[in-house]
Amino acid sequence: MIFICEKHKLLEGISIVQKAITGKSTMQILDGIYINAKDGELTLIGSDMDLSIQTTVKSDVIENGEIVIDAKIFGEIIRKLPNSDIKIETIENESIQITCEKSIFNVVYMNASEYPSLPNINENLKVEVSESILKNMIKGTSFAIAQDETRPILQGILFEVKNKNLNLVALDGYRLAVRSEFLDTDIDIEVVIPGKTLIEVSKILEDNEKTVYITFTNNHILFNLENTKIISRLLDGKFVNYNSLLPQEHKLLVNINRQELQNGIERASLMAKDGNTNLIKLDITEDTLVITSNSQLGKVREEVSLKLQGDEIQIAFNSRYLLDVLKNMEDEEVIMEMTSGISPCVIKEKDSENSKYLVLPVRLMR
């Protein structure tokens, strides 16, 4: 195998596939990047069996061949080489020689025939969505993935195509995040994708209008980008019926400026860091929201203007849960719907139906 490739192209390919290499696999071969040089391009693959990423890089291939090379050392070498063309060739003793300007590295490689093949996915049943929309949807839900390993299904994100809508849903028992986008398809599908996989997918996606083709099987999901394929194992089991968790009625509605609310909560939370509750109290009156927090550190009082429909209320929250929601919303104004000081609060954007969040309050000791 002999090829010559521009450093920045090779490095970009390595950094994409490295996202699938955890170093936790019992198979040593999966610590490596699979490289196949053929027909003027390199095919790179990284995998931990649950998540596999394949990408192609344009290259001057002089002699076809395939190898597997330790991802960590290969990535570090390429990163530190000069910004110039890199020549890589196989030599004796199962080694490759990496040459760039005056630098020469000899590195041992592994046998490519031992590398597991990627799952075969029939790409007939597929939906299409733009990169920027999918990236935004993942960002707007992934913060609510459960960290608790006792309910593995909640460590995933529900990926639901239904009634010409794509819905991404995450919940952890304290908050629920739902993002929806119109999708011109008649396909109905419901799968649960490991949350950590989708977070890695979002790092590869860019803020552009290029199309991502998404294909499903019973066990896997495939995201097909321009030069990159991401294949993930699906989680077994049925996701929680999230619609049943969203209250159908409310007794009061608050219309408030999102940035002012976020700023007020961020300042109040500075005094709420005592312990892990991050407790802040909201006192909602006819035209004012008073945010307070008392701890051993001291106390704070913040005021934000609002418009209220319904009765006045006192309610308390973990400030972090509210901030996670507000940071992932885009509208200037948000709507908060509540029924009592101990029932869930639903937060929506004023002018958009695409986001819906539910946050449980903290019960106050009387």
Rank of each mutant, 00 (worst) to 15 (best):
L308Q: 08
T288S: 13
K273H: 05
T292W: 02
L282Y: 10
V254S: 08
V300A: 14
R301I: 10
P247S: 15
N263I: 14
L308E: 04
A316T: 04
L270I: 14
Q296D: 14
E260M: 13
G275H: 03
S305Q: 14
S305H: 15
G275C: 03
T292S: 13
M271W: 04
G264C: 12
G298A: 13
M271I: 03
H250M: 06
K251R: 06
R301L: 11
I315N: 02
N294Q: 14
E249T: 13
I291W: 02
D274Y: 01
M271T: 04
N243F: 03
M271A: 05
T288V: 13
I315E: 10
L253W: 06
N257P: 06
Q314E: 11
N241P: 06
S269Q: 10
G275E: 05
Q309T: 12
I280E: 04
Q314H: 09
Q248G: 06
N241R: 13
K307R: 14
L252E: 09
L306I: 12
S319H: 02
N243M: 11
S319V: 03
R258T: 12
F317S: 00
V304N: 02
R267A: 01
G264Y: 06
V254R: 05
N255I: 15
L261V: 11
I280T: 03
G298R: 11
Q296Y: 07
L253Y: 09
F317G: 03
E260H: 13
D287P: 00
N243A: 02
N318H: 00
